[in-house]
Structures are given as structure tokens and as C-alpha cells.
């Protein structure tokens, strides 16, 4: 197949993907989105002969616009812009999960610091304040006291970009020092790992320690439904274990092995180098298997469209 890779930075994830694609004899066109222009009917990017384009943009805004424009030209692109639109925004992400009846942390949005303060007081301390757009655990705040809340809200309102004036407030989930990252393709898990840390942020990007994780039936069901809720594609589904009362002797909570989960986020330009290292799964190979299937399906859809046009 001829596959395009949208990028602005080749990380280890993209190198793994490029290596696997080339090893299988696929023709790869790297498309540096910083060098291209996207018009209403065409683009300077060489996409005409591509069977599939894979969005690997590091920048969320570039990812959203580039995929939207390519999709408008009829170029098959993964992930679809609709999926990116939901996943790139934590508020839309939470809403999509809740609408699909998937357990997700209680969340409120507020537009002024006064309203945000009311939400924080109702959640109680600690609770969490996150930017609606952002990644790698950046600018996330665990709020332990009212005075901390007042300071953070004032800073965000005074110094922030307008997006920081959309206050995304969430219950603090007392997870067992780890969360779970699942890489899934159209709801089917490729690999899963835990990310552990003594810090409340356990992201691999924050230095969380990663270990392979076996998904049980409940987790499998949630991953499939979470994927569907955001429109499917190659996704990083993040879960936290919940549901165990505090230990009488240690006071520890969180629920390791409880079999109950809350899905806090689904990511649409998922990184997988940590998963590839933490598990025995050949992650790039599984991803390329899926890309090949998507390209075949897209070719079938195109042929069907051509046939339908020929009959009209």
C-alpha cells in the first residue's frame, strides 16, 4: 500500500512505525505538515495516490485541521477528524464517555473563577483542575485547599489563553498508585500496561514506571465501548482501578485488582513506544496489520462509491 504519515516531528513511535511499514514493502510518503498548505479543494501535500494517511502530528491543532482537510478531499485518514475532535478536548471526551454510559470521573465545566470555585467546593478536597486541551500531565493541578484553588484559578484567569478560562474540574480518583494504558484499534486491544508512580500523575511522560497488564473481561468491554464512544480508530484508552474501601490498617485505597474501572481519557494520537518496551507484543506490527486492513477497507469503499456513481 501507499501510506502517508502526517508529522512534524519523528519520535521513536514514528520510527517504529516507519520501520515496520518499510520492512513490509509499503511505500511511505512522509508529510511534514509545517511545509504544506491546505486549501478548500486541494493541498500542496502529495496525497493523490495514497491509500491511507496516518495522522502522527504531535501538535493537536495541526492534527485536527490537517485531518479535517484531507478528509474533505476524500483521502482516507486515520484517525478520523471526528475522533480527533472528541479526544483532543477533555470536556468533549468526558461527555462522550458519559453519554455512552461508561464510568468516568465526575466532571464539571465552569467559565468563571467564581463558578469554578463553587464546583471545587462541592467536589471537596482534593479535586483536580485540568486544561481542556493538553497532554503528558502538563498544567494539571491537584487542589488540596481552598487557598490553593483561589491562587490557581486567579493565575489561570489572568495569565491563561482563553482555553484556560474553561475550567475543567474533576473528582480526584484515589487510584492505587497506577493507571492503565490500553492501545486499541477500533476497540480491539493491541497491548496494555500499567503506569505506576508515587506521584499522583502516573503518565509515562512524567516518568511513571510501566509494566505489562492483562485485561479482564470488564476492562475489555470498557475499552471497546470507549473506542466506539469517540468514533473508533487507533486510540490510547486510559483507565483507573476503583472500588476498594480503605484498608483498616494502612488506610490505603484505590482498588488494585478490584475488577472495577473508571475511564478517564481516550487519546487520539497515541504514543506506543513505552508499550512496545513494556510488553511482549510487537506493537508496530499489530498497528501495521490494522493499517493494512483499513487501507483495504478504504479501497473497497472507494470502489463501491465509483460503482454507485457509474449507476447514477
Amino acid at each position: 500500500m501507499q501510506v502517508g504519515i502526517l508529522y512534524s516531528r519523528i519520535r521513536k513511535d514514528e520510527k517504529l512505525l516507519l520501520g515496520e511499514l518499510r520492512e513490509r514493502g509499503h511505500e511511505v510518503t512522509k508529510i511534514d505538515v509545517r511545509k504544506e498548505r491546505f486549501g478548500l479543494e486541494s493541498t500542496t501535500a502529495d496525497v493523490g495516490d495514497l491509500d491511507l494517511v496516518v495522522d502522527r502530528c504531535l501538535s493537536t491543532s495541526r492534527s485536527l485541521y490537517a485531518t479535517k482537510f484531507l478528509d474533505s478531499y476524500g483521502v482516507p485518514v486515520v484517525n478520523a477528524p471526528e475522533t480527533g475532535d472528541v479526544c483532543a478536548d477533555k470536556a468533549k471526551n468526558s461527555l462522550a464517555l458519559a453519554e455512552a454510559d461508561i464510568p468516568t470521573p465526575a466532571t464539571e465545566i465552569a467559565f468563571t473563577k467564581e463558578a469554578a470555585m463553587e464546583a471545587i467546593e462541592e467536589f471537596g478536597y482534593p479535586c483536580v483542575l485540568k486544561p481542556v486541551v493538553g497532554s503528558w500531565g502538563r498544567l494539571m493541578a491537584k487542589i488540596d485547599t481552598r487557598s490553593a484553588a483561589e491562587a490557581i484559578l486567579e493565575h489561570k484567569e489572568t495569565l491563561g489563553h482563553y482555553e484556560h478560562k474553561v475550567f475543567y474540574i474533576q473528582e480526584f480518583v484515589d487510584k492505587p498508585g497506577r493507571d492503565i494504558r490500553v492501545l486499541a484499534v477500533d476497540g480491539e486491544p493491541v497491548a496494555a500496561m500499567t503506569r505506576s508512580s508515587d506521584h499522583w500523575l502516573t503518565n509515562a511522560a512524567k516518568g511513571g514506571e510501566t509494566t505489562s497488564f492483562d485485561l479482564d473481561d470488564r476492562a475489555l468491554d470498557l475499552v471497546e465501548r470507549a473506542s466506539e464512544a469517540v468514533g473508533g480508530g487507533m486510540l490510547g484508552v486510559d483507565l483507573m482501578e476503583v472500588g476498594v474501601e480503605p484498608e483498616a490498617d494502612t488506610g490505603e485505597t484505590g482498588g488494585t485488582g478490584s475488577g472495577e474501572y473508571t475511564v478517564h481519557e481516550v487519546n487520539h494520537t497515541v504514543e506506543f513506544k513505552a508499550l512496545d518496551s513494556a510488553t511482549d507484543v510487537d506493537v508496530p506490527a499489530k498497528v501495521v496489520d490494522w493499517l493494512e486492513a483499513k487501507a483495504t477497507a478504504a479501497a473497497g469503499d472507494g470502489a463501491a462509491d465509483d460503482t454507485a456513481e457509474a449507476h447514477t
Binding site: 516531528r9 501538535s59 486541551v133 493538553g134 503528558w136 502538563r138 487520539h268 494520537t269
Partner: peptide
């Protein structure tokens, strides 16, 4: 020199 990290970078 690579571009500095920007706010919307990530997953």
C-alpha cells in the same frame, strides 16, 4: 535546534 515544546503538543 528543534522547536520548543508547545502547549498543544502531546497525545
Amino acid at each position: 535546534e528543534a522547536p520548543e515544546l508547545e502547549e498543544d503538543w502531546g497525545e
